[in-house]
């Protein structure tokens, strides 16, 4: 445990240094995040206005709040892109990682966290700028903000592990574009990324409750906006823990098979 903590810390430091080298790339990612949130914000504000100032239980200024807070939660819950993993496997970079006496996921996690930490330097000013322009309204509920911290951590870990499992399929086939696109499409719809889930028809909201995506994004976002009730919060944590258990079992299963397959076919 101490060993893993040391690796996490050392990898975080190393990747923090590396991330600062990628100023342009970080900047572009930040602009991408800003543009995406801005598009949804404008679209849904227009819809709300056309429908008399309300959509899916959100007023026009609450919609603005949703998509500004969205940037924060989105930055926290990004994970390893399967394409990046595929590239590493194809280039043979995975060989040296497999020969280290510690699982590669730990150094990878630190790399991700370092990139998030650096991104926050620009995300937060961008959120402030948007807030000044769109004058959002949201309620800061103290208990909800306290619950936000574990909810965000769980959301990050959950999505991170899920993306990692998905990325590991690259060990079987190195042409996964189609699968990822389908996956992202489903996630887009059911996570609350394109629209607050309350906008969806009742049946879709029920489906969203069962799938993992809501718990990786919409749930912490609602806590940040102070829109959750205590019973909803408890249900949310229960779902996060349930899905996390499933994911951890899944990654162990997949990892063992993936590396065995890798070892069988050659790197």
């Amino acid at each position: 445990m101490k060993h893993i903590a040391q690796v996490l810390l050392a990898a975080f430091k190393a990747h923090l240094i590396a991330t600062f080298q990628y100023r342009v790339q970080e900047g572009m990612q930040m602009i991408g995040l800003l543009v995406e949130s801005l598009i949804y914000l404008v679209v849904w504000t227009t819809v709300a206005k056309a429908r008399g100032g309300e959509v899916g239980g959100f007023s026009t200024d609450e919609i603005a709040g949703y998509f500004i807070a969205w940037m924060f939660v989105r930055n926290i819950t990004t994970g390893w892109s399967p394409y990046a993993m595929e590239w590493r496997i194809r280039r043979g970079d995975f060989n040296s990682l497999l020969l280290r006496p510690v699982h590669p996921i730990f150094a990878d996690t630190s790399e991700m966290l370092a990139s998030k930490a650096v991104a926050m330097i620009t995300v937060i000013p961008a959120m402030i700028a948007l807030a000044l322009v769109f004058k959002p309204r949201f309620e800061l509920v103290p208990w909800s903000l306290v619950a936000l911290i574990p909810a965000l951590i769980l959301a990050f870990v959950l999505r991170y592990v899920l993306m990692y499992v998905l990325a590991l399929t690259a060990f079987w086939t190195t042409r996964l574009g189609g699968l990822f696109e389908l996956w992202y499409g489903v996630e887009f719809f059911f996570s609350g990324r394109v629209a607050p889930l309350t906008v969806l028809p009742e049946w879709a909201q029920q489906v969203a409750n069962l799938l993992p995506f809501k718990w990786m994004f919409y749930f912490p976002l609602e806590l940040l906006l102070g829109r959750s009730q205590p019973d909803e919060m408890l249900f949310g944590f229960a779902m996060q823990i349930l899905w996390l258990t499933v994911m951890v079992l899944l990654i162990r299963f997949v990892w063992r098979r993936a590396t065995r397959r890798y070892a069988a076919v050659g790197g």
């Binding site: 060993h3 810390l9 050392a10 590396a18 080298q21 040296s96 280290r100």
Partner: peptide, 21 residues
């Protein structure tokens, strides 16, 4: 072999190896 992190000095990657090993 590419075990060192590409964008940072080797000395910083060595610090990571120190923790790993």
């Amino acid at each position: 072999r590419n075990q060192l992190i590409w964008d940072i000095p080797a000395a910083d990657s060595y610090d990571l190896f120190k923790a790993i090993y």
